[in-house]
Amino acid sequence: MKCKVCKAEAVVGLPSHNTAFCAVCYDKFFMKQVSEGIRKKKLLEADDRVLVALSGGKDSLGLMYALAELGYDVTGLHIDLGISDSSRKARAVVEDFCKDRGYALKVVELEKEGVPMPLIKKHINRPICSVCGKFKRHYFNKVALEDGYTALATGHNLDDEVARLFANTLRWDQAYLSDQGPVLPAENGFAKKVKPLYRVSEFESANFSFLKGIPYHHLPCPYSKGASFTGHKMIWRNQEIRSPGSKRAFYGGFLERGQPAFAAIHEKKKDYEVKPCTKCNCPTSVGVCGVCRVREQLADSLMASNE
């Protein structure tokens, strides 16, 4: 297979774009997908101070690299969840990567914060992944607020966004469908949230990270279900094979035509407001935020187990 641009031997074939690239031309293609995506949906301004969530996976590290290459002011944020080997490995990958490339990095240790995930799992009777997600978002917002970042960037790719949109469409979740997209604007002083990889697939992202020599950990979290292609991702994988470009058309069509229509009917119904938590100042719509509540429950449970 030959590169469609320069006719050298291709290293990546992309049916969704009906094309193939050598390493040099693939780099240009990928970077253009990211920069065009940022420009089209106005994700970032040149003077934004961007905090990038770094899990240690290929998407987050590749995103950090791409944003730095595009000249943005980026700082990484890693949340060390305190989950045995998996967290240690993830943190080491992130720290080595940032040191290697000269990127600024902040690390929040949940152990030091008194809320490592294994302790939460033991004491809080709720699905661990939903609590874990809550804590990650919480610290992301908190660091941005305290250190003056204007944008929070995550490595969600097209496959992630399509799977999520699909799930929310199946239950016609109006609230979600009215305000989802690659950018959630700043609200009440909280930084905007952006997903600059929304136009690139998981496969494209994996190729990019490989070709850029970006290391990534693949030690799964012991609490994850471990399924490689989970439910909706499998459906979309098969659909994409049958009809290349389906994912882009579904998500792109939603952004162009679906989301604005839902926003128009939902606007009037919005009956909550995002405000600072009365305890910790992080964004919430329910007075005391979810994380502060979990902390209270944890304290109660620890007290009870000591009695």
């Binding site: 297979m1 290293v11 990546v12 074939g13 390493a23 496969f203 490989f210 094979i241």
Partner: peptide
């Protein structure tokens, strides 16, 4: 596997499905 499901690597180089 379909060729967009996995990276195929030989000696540090990516291979397309026709290689």
């Amino acid at each position: 596997l379909f060729y967009t499901d996995a990276l195929v690597i030989r000696d540090g180089e990516l291979l397309t499905q026709d290689r």
